Simulated scan of single mutants.
Amino acid sequence: MSDELVDVLRYADGGGLRYVTVPAGDGDRVVAAAETDRRRQEAMRTLLKWVVIACVLAYEVAVADDVVLGGFAAVAVAVGFAVGDRGTDATVPHVVARDVSREEHVTECDAEGPTSAVDAEQ
């Protein structure tokens, strides 16, 4: 193993914690890019929710001629979107170590237990 310096990122997903190494200094850029993607996904999800609600209301008013049923259907769609929120925070990593040697990182992960160190460079 070389004495290459890396930043260590931690992802918390459904399967537990996952550690990823990136070249030293790139950790903050990876986190910023993931945060930007998360915000973009949330904005698209919000837009989709409002488009679906508008379509449901328009259908109920124009075709079914029932404003009350349209209101209930719109509330049901909003609740469905709220319940179906998958929690996109898991896609944003956290920098847990900056400028550490790859050997030091692997040793620390082995000591912590069943976590995995994956190279993002692959």
Rank of each mutant, 00 (worst) to 15 (best):
E35Q: 08
D110M: 12
R38A: 07
A90I: 13
V6K: 14
V95P: 08
A117D: 05
E121F: 00
G113P: 06
G84D: 03
A24T: 05
D28T: 12
A62G: 07
D110E: 08
A82P: 00
G71M: 11
E4W: 01
V56P: 04
T88M: 15
A82G: 09
G71F: 08
D110L: 13
Y11V: 13
T46H: 10
A74G: 10
T115W: 07
G15F: 10
G84L: 09
D13F: 07
R86M: 06
V56Y: 01
A90T: 10
R102A: 13
R40H: 13
E42V: 13
A54M: 12
E42R: 15
T46S: 14
G87W: 05
E4F: 11
A34F: 09
A58N: 01
L17N: 04
G70H: 05
A58D: 00
A111M: 08
A43P: 00
D89K: 09
G27V: 07
H94M: 07
Y11T: 09
E112V: 14
T88S: 14
T36Q: 11
V79H: 06
M1Y: 02
A120L: 14
A97I: 10
R10Q: 15
V75M: 14
V8H: 01
M44T: 03
T21M: 13
Q122R: 14
V52W: 02
V51L: 15
T107P: 00
L9K: 09
E42F: 12
A12Y: 00
L47V: 01
V95K: 10
L5W: 03
D66G: 04
P93Q: 06
V8W: 00
V68E: 06
D99I: 04
A58Q: 03
H94D: 01
V100I: 03
L17I: 05
R29M: 11
D26W: 10
V92P: 01
V75E: 06
A82L: 12
D110P: 01
A33E: 11
D99K: 07
V118R: 12
D99P: 02
P114Q: 10
A33K: 11
